[in-house]
Nucleic acid binder design. Sequence first.
DNA 1: GCCAACGTTGGC
DNA 2: GCCAACGTTGGC
Length: 156
Amino acid sequence: MSTKYWLMKSEPDVFSIEMLEKQKKPEYWDGVRNYQARNFMRDEMKKGDLVLFYHSNCEVPGVAGIAIVSKEAYPDHTQWDKKSKYFDPKASKENPRWFMVELTWKETFHKVVSLQEIKEEKTLSKMRLVQKGNRLSVMPVEKEEFDFIKKMSKRK
DNA sequence: GCCAACGTTGGC
DNA sequence: GCCAACGTTGGC
């Protein structure tokens, strides 16, 4: 199996790449409540896949670093937790609806590759991220796009 | 904080 | 199964 590449969004106020780096342990990616995003995580994400860690809903939205999938999809426990904002009354233990993966920190970019810069690159114009109205929090990216963004993070 | 673009829900 | 109403995401 070859490595796949992904982009996952997180609000840095809630959870940032810096927090992932500091905690020195994997983070489970709970709270995904979108079927398309779930399917990507549950069906396609494999251990060792590489993830562009994207900061959304903040001053400079963009890719802030790289993480690696360290555990493949398993049921998201917050769906059964009545006190959680992610509680889903339609999910049962026998038939879980929502899944999550675990990510381990790999790299924090010296500078964030901003959404604005990404939009300016013709090479990246096919990314789902820059297409109109895209709100997916988990999406696949091409190896070429992944490598290109990594290269952009090293620019002056 | 605004609002466009979606996704989901529920009445019919 | 349609679609209006509502909720959410996320850039700005």
